[in-house]
Every structure is written in C-alpha cells, then in structure tokens.
C-alpha cells in the first residue's frame, strides 16, 4: 500500500496543486510590490518586509517538514506534503488524521492496516475539516473588512477624501494629525493576548503539568522562550542603539535558532 501512496501519480496530483498555490502566492506578491511602489512606498522597506518574512519562515517551515516526515510513514509522502503546504496546520493534521483513521475502523493511523478506501476517506476528511477559513474568506472577507474599516477609520476616511485630489503625502499627513484609531492598538493587544496565552501555558505546564502545583513539569519551553527573548533583546539593542538596522530582518530567525539550540543543550 505504501508503494501506491508514494507513486508518481500521487506526486503529480499533489505537486500540481502545490504548484498552483505557489503561483497564486507569486501573483499576490508581485501585485502587492507593484502597488507599494505605485503609492510611493519606499522600495527598501518593501524589500525588507520580504526578506524578513523569508528568514522568519525558514525555521518554522523546517518544523512543518518534520510533520510531513511524521505523517509520511502512514499516509505516504505526497498527501502530507500537500496537506502541510496548503491550508494545513501542524497541530491539526496529525490529530484529524488519527481521528479519521479511527472512524474508518483502523486501530490507529498505521500503514499496516491502511486500505485504498481508508486512505481516500481519511484524505477527504482532512480536507473538509479545515476548509472553513477559505469558505468564510470567499463569502465574507470583503464585507467584514469593509465593516471594520468603516468603524475604526471614519475620521481617517474623511481626511483622505478631503485630500483625494491633492498628492498622497498630504493624505498621509492628514492621517497622522488625527492619530491612529483603536484598530491598531486592538491588533497589538490581540497579539499580546496570543503570546501571553502560549507563555502562560508553558508556565502552567511546568507548575501543574505533571501533578497539581508540584513544579515537576517540563521547564524546557520556558527556558527556550527566555533565551530567545534575551537574544532578541541583544538584536534590538544592536539595531536600535548601534544602528545596525539590517539586522532586523534576521533578528527573529536568529533568536529562534539560539533558543532552539538551548533546548538541545538542556537535554
């Protein structure tokens, strides 16, 4: 069965879909870059946003590759490759694949019991369970963003309209004078809430993870996060105080790498 699941036909089907999504990314990237230039954004700023995003994504992507390897033992390589390249999520795939395997009567997700019917059913369930983000985007992205912009930026919209006939720089000044709306603070706050939930879970896991209030849980994630934060502080110091601005593009990736190395030495 695993030979069939790793056949060139499956590579072709999955690779074709991935190539399509890659093309979509290129189209969006080129359009956004051109639009940035057209509205007078600094080319260097756009390039830095690009390079920082690439360096930022390398390490998590290697982590995702491990997910492909983990699933390839039972589902072959092409399908997990597709799943984790397109709308997949590392924490999602294994869980759903496992649950799907149980639904089709396998004792667990393993290649010995895998049949063609089991595989196609598991594959369909994996696709269906996670498709809602795309469906919601299809129907509501435009209306939702319009509603939000209308709410948070009423004064900004007015100022932009006032300067619609003058040049772009005047519009920018108009915005700055009004001050940023709450939308921006809300996004920052949401992200702080997100990071707090994760770091809180590491602390909770250490204190009560093994047994309630025994401080015998895994300390590694806390140390890794702390090391990574310290290295980030070093990068920030260098880029802000020593004016090594170019470091910004690599600071997150560099901090993560040192943090992850710390995990190796802790064992």
């Amino acid at each position: 069965m695993i030979v069939q699941l790793n056949s060139s036909t499956l590579y072709l089907i999955c690779g074709g879909i991935i190539a399509f999504v890659a093309l979509v990314c290129v189209v969006f990237m080129v359009r956004a870059f051109r639009a940035g230039i057209a509205i007078g954004m600094d080319r260097a700023k756009l390039v830095r946003a690009l390079t920082s995003s690439v360096t930022f994504s390398i390490l998590p992507s290697v982590g995702i590759l491990l997910g492909v390897i983990a699933l390839s033992g039972s589902l072959g390589t092409p399908w997990p490759w597709l799943r984790l390249s397109v709308i997949g999520a590392l924490h999602y795939e294994t869980q759903v694949a496992q649950a799907a395997a149980e639904q089709v009567g396998l004792s667990s997700l393993n290649v010995q019991e895998m049949t063609p019917a089991a595989f196609s059913t598991i594959a369909l369930l994996m696709s269906i369970c996670i498709m809602w983000g795309m469906i919601l985007s299809f129907f509501f992205n435009k209306a939702y963003l319009k509603k939000l912009q209308g709410k948070q930026a009423a004064p900004i919209a007015e100022s932009t309209q006032d300067t619609a006939t003058s040049d772009g720089a005047a519009g920018e000044t108009g915005k700055k004078e009004k001050g940023p709306g709450f939308g921006d603070s809300a996004m920052t706050a949401m992200f702080i809430g997100l990071v707090s939930a994760y770091i809180g879970s590491y602390i909770g896991s250490f204190v009560s993870g093994e047994e309630f209030l025994t401080f015998r849980g895994d300390l590694t994630p806390i140390i890794v996060a702390a090391v990574s934060a310290l290295v980030m502080a070093g990068f920030t110091y260098l880029s802000e105080k020593k004016h090594m601005v170019w470091l910004e593009s690599f600071s997150i990736a560099g901090s993560m790498l040192v943090g992850m190395l710390a995990a190796i030495f802790l064992r």
């Binding site: 991935i18 969006f28 956004a32 870059f33 639009a35 940035g36 509205i39 920082s52 995003s53 390398i58």
Partner: peptide, 25 residues
C-alpha cells in the same frame, strides 16, 4: 493596521512566508 500600506506589507509578508514553506517542503 487598516491602512493601504499595511495591506501591502501584510500581503507581501504572507506571500513570501508561504513561498518559503512551499520551497522548503
């Protein structure tokens, strides 16, 4: 957030990030 500049940076960032994952995988 909510500005056209942010829309452009965000699109560039997500596209570059997605392509990186696709290439690495």
């Amino acid at each position: 957030s909510g500005t056209p500049e942010n829309e452009i940076i965000s699109t560039l960032s997500i596209a570059a990030s997605s392509l990186t994952t696709i290439v690495i995988l």
